[in-house]
């Protein structure tokens, strides 16, 4: 690990001031320290934000405000989240292990980096790790890579589960700027597509600090988080679906869906929801939803299987959520 100056932030504004080029904020550190050991992340300054007052889950008008330093374990164990936002608790519990979730935080989880093998291997080219070096995954080993929204520069996926549920719930990220001003970023707009700048995972600007995730009022309905992976525990998603469906008089009254494992960000396609709402559930309808979702899907060779797998997982989840379980 490369050497760094260690300091502790005493206030959010203090953290923002120190979050300059070359510095990294550290909370749980479960992803950052792993990357620092491999010298993929090489910060010259590490700003410890664990002593900031960003813990606790509070009620807001109708919803909940989850402090950025709330651990993934505490979030999934919160009675209100288990009762009113089960999809969020389920998604968190589908990721990592109890040890990691005890340390990993709400803000840090959003900022975790891809698990692309080429990003992790310093002997390989990677535009995300070192812009301009190329992408080893294109034409290489790409079983876990993106089928939607990829670019010629990068086909990496966002690896997390929590943010997929947050995207389905249409939660927002509360961010504090260097001047102390706050802004809200919808989770659906927080992560970026790679484009020509895959080194940028999300839209945070220099000096911005995540202070909370804000959940809207409970949406009810049937909530399902389904994750398909290579082993049944402690593995990243090949494909995951977060689904909230509310039926009204035999028709789909509300639908909100987000997908993990498919792209550089949790994938949300309003066209899928528009197609479902107002219609009676049927396999034909679910196939059309999959057609919309996957219209632009492109396999890279070893990940071609994700296209039919996504269709099947989506159909299975929609059957279950609309009461047509087989």
């Amino acid at each position: 690990m490369k050497g760094f100056d260690y300091s502790r932030a005493e206030a959010v504004t203090h953290a923002a001031e120190q979050a300059r080029e070359g510095a990294r904020l550290i909370a749980g550190g479960t992803n950052l320290l792993d990357l620092m050991k491999l010298e993929i992340e090489r910060p010259d300054a590490l700003v410890d934000i664990n002593r900031l007052e960003l813990g606790g889950i509070e009620r807001t008008e109708g919803g909940l405000r989850i402090g950025a330093l709330v651990s993934n374990s505490a979030c999934a164990a919160d009675e209100r989240i288990r009762r009113d936002y089960p999809i969020l608790a389920r998604a968190i519990l589908a990721g990592a292990t109890f040890q990691l979730r005890n340390k990993a935080t709400t803000g840090g989880n959003l900022c975790q980096r891809t698990r692309c093998y080429y990003f992790y291997n310093r002997d390989q080219p990677c535009n995300k790790r070192e812009p301009g070096t190329g992408c080893g995954a294109i034409g290489g080993v790409n079983r876990i890579h993106a089928i939607l929204g990829a670019s010629e520069a990068c086909i990496a996926t966002y690896p997390g589960d929590m943010a997929v549920a947050l995207a389905a719930l249409d939660a927002s990220v509360e961010v504090s700027g260097r001047d102390g001003s706050a802004r809200m970023i919808p989770v659906r707009a927080f992560h970026r597509l790679p484009g020509d700048h895959p080194e940028r995972d999300n839209v945070l600007e220099a000096g911005e600090v995540i202070t909370a995730v804000v959940l809207p009022e409970p949406v009810g309905g049937t909530q399902i988080y389904r994750k398909v992976r290579d082993r049944s525990s402690y593995a990243f998603a090949l494909v995951s679906v977060a689904c909230v469906i509310a039926m009204e008089e035999g028709r789909i009254g509300r639908a909100s869906l987000a997908f993990g494992g498919l792209a550089h960000k949790p994938w949300h396609d309003p066209g899928v929801e528009e197609l479902l709402v107002g219609n009676e559930p049927s396999d034909a309808l679910f196939d059309k939803a999959a057609d919309v979702l996957l219209a632009e899907a492109k396999g890279q060779g070893a990940n071609d299987f994700k296209i039919p797998m996504t269709r099947r997982v989506l159909k299975g989840v929609l059957r279950e959520a609309t009461g047509r379980a087989v």
């Binding site: 260690y6 550290i26 749980g28 550190g29 479960t30 320290l33 792993d34 109890f98 040890q99 990691l100 005890n102 340390k103």
Partner: peptide
């Protein structure tokens, strides 16, 4: 419980 290798 935590992984003591992933914390300073």
């Amino acid at each position: 419980r935590i992984n003591s290798c992933l914390t300073l």
